[in-house]
Simulated assay, not measured.
Amino acid sequence: MRGTVDGFTQGPAILALAFLVACLGAAVGLRCAIRPSRTARTGRPSGTVRLLLGALSVGFGIWIMHHVAITGFTVVETPLSRDRPHVLIGLVVVVVMAGVGLFVVGYRGATRMALITGGALTGLGIASTHYLGMAGIRFQGHFTYETPLVVLSVLIAATAATAALRAALSTRTLLSGLGAGVMMALAVTGMHYTGMAALGVQLQPGVSSVVSADPPAD
């Protein structure tokens, strides 16, 4: 039996809030990490510390965005719950992969290979935290995915993340830093909602058709 998915039970304000969270986390993290990371090559510990703080900011922003957006997600026929280990693993993965992506671009600069590598790693981190989070949702059934849309979601994340890293390298003002943050937020939200569009629900036999409006519980 196919389930009915509703991704906006909390209204469109959830989309705006999720985008804002991702934007702020990315803007702070990119500003903190990219330019200072270049100084870390000289052995100054402050550059390395700021790179780590930037990775945490970007990673947490991505992770929180997913969990803000998912509060508006329900399967109409059955209540949902979350598996905490999947949630925490998703956080670790995105912080590590975003950190490596920032490290590559911060140290190598705006070379084509550095941007492609850094953007791909960051994009994969974004996708990983999303799909790990979805894998941790428990209900009376299972999710199915349309492979072309899943691939598209990863490509969106990697492409927009690459653009954000490129913009961050030329950041000179607060406004340009916010612009880089917006690009990264587009990577995160674009990936998330494309991934959600790829999703289908297969319910277990005998599941009641009673409507459940509950978002995923912790």
Results as ranks from 00 to 15, higher is better:
residue 157 A to T: 05
residue 177 G to A: 02
residue 178 L to E: 10
residue 54 G to R: 00
residue 143 F to M: 11
residue 117 T to W: 03
residue 163 A to Y: 05
residue 96 V to P: 01
residue 111 T to F: 09
residue 113 M to P: 00
residue 68 V to G: 01
residue 79 P to Y: 02
residue 135 A to F: 09
residue 174 L to I: 14
residue 109 G to E: 03
residue 184 M to L: 15
residue 91 L to Y: 14
residue 156 I to W: 01
residue 174 L to D: 10
residue 140 Q to K: 13
residue 132 L to W: 05
residue 165 L to V: 11
residue 161 A to Q: 01
residue 109 G to Y: 12
residue 125 G to E: 03
residue 99 G to A: 15
residue 59 G to R: 01
residue 122 T to H: 01
residue 92 V to C: 10
residue 139 F to T: 10
residue 115 L to D: 05
residue 139 F to K: 00
residue 87 V to E: 06
residue 178 L to Y: 07
residue 134 M to Y: 05
residue 185 A to P: 04
residue 97 M to R: 02
residue 82 R to T: 12
residue 75 V to A: 11
residue 92 V to P: 02
residue 99 G to I: 10
residue 77 E to N: 08
residue 151 V to Q: 07
residue 124 L to C: 09
residue 70 I to T: 08
residue 154 V to S: 03
residue 160 A to G: 12
residue 57 S to W: 06
residue 131 Y to Q: 06
residue 71 T to R: 14
residue 140 Q to E: 14
residue 65 M to Q: 08
residue 121 L to A: 00
residue 159 T to R: 08
residue 173 T to K: 15
residue 99 G to M: 13
residue 93 V to E: 12
residue 174 L to C: 12
residue 110 A to N: 03
residue 117 T to P: 02
residue 126 I to V: 14
residue 175 L to F: 11
residue 103 F to T: 13
residue 109 G to A: 14
residue 91 L to E: 07
residue 106 G to K: 05
residue 171 T to H: 08
residue 76 V to N: 05
residue 90 G to R: 00
residue 71 T to A: 09
residue 133 G to W: 10
residue 126 I to C: 01
residue 148 P to F: 15
residue 79 P to H: 06
residue 73 F to S: 00
residue 97 M to H: 00
residue 87 V to P: 02
residue 132 L to Y: 10
residue 179 G to L: 12
residue 85 P to G: 02
residue 149 L to C: 00
residue 65 M to D: 06
residue 173 T to Q: 11
residue 101 G to W: 09
residue 76 V to Q: 04
residue 133 G to D: 02
residue 140 Q to F: 07
residue 170 S to R: 12
residue 88 L to A: 07
residue 113 M to E: 07
residue 74 T to E: 08
residue 171 T to S: 08
residue 142 H to M: 15
residue 174 L to W: 13
residue 125 G to K: 05
residue 153 S to N: 06
residue 164 A to N: 08
residue 104 V to P: 04
residue 137 I to R: 02
residue 141 G to N: 13
residue 132 L to T: 11
residue 121 L to F: 01
residue 173 T to N: 13
residue 185 A to T: 09
residue 82 R to N: 14
residue 145 Y to P: 09
residue 119 G to T: 11
residue 145 Y to S: 09
residue 106 G to R: 02
residue 124 L to H: 00
residue 131 Y to G: 03
residue 54 G to F: 01
residue 77 E to W: 14
residue 57 S to P: 04
residue 147 T to S: 03
residue 159 T to H: 03
residue 104 V to L: 00
residue 176 S to Q: 14
residue 159 T to Y: 10
residue 130 H to T: 13
residue 156 I to G: 02
residue 152 L to N: 05
residue 60 F to I: 09
residue 141 G to F: 12
residue 62 I to K: 03
residue 102 L to T: 03
residue 127 A to F: 01
residue 173 T to P: 11
residue 87 V to K: 01
residue 61 G to A: 06
residue 132 L to R: 11
residue 59 G to L: 08
residue 111 T to S: 15
residue 113 M to Q: 10
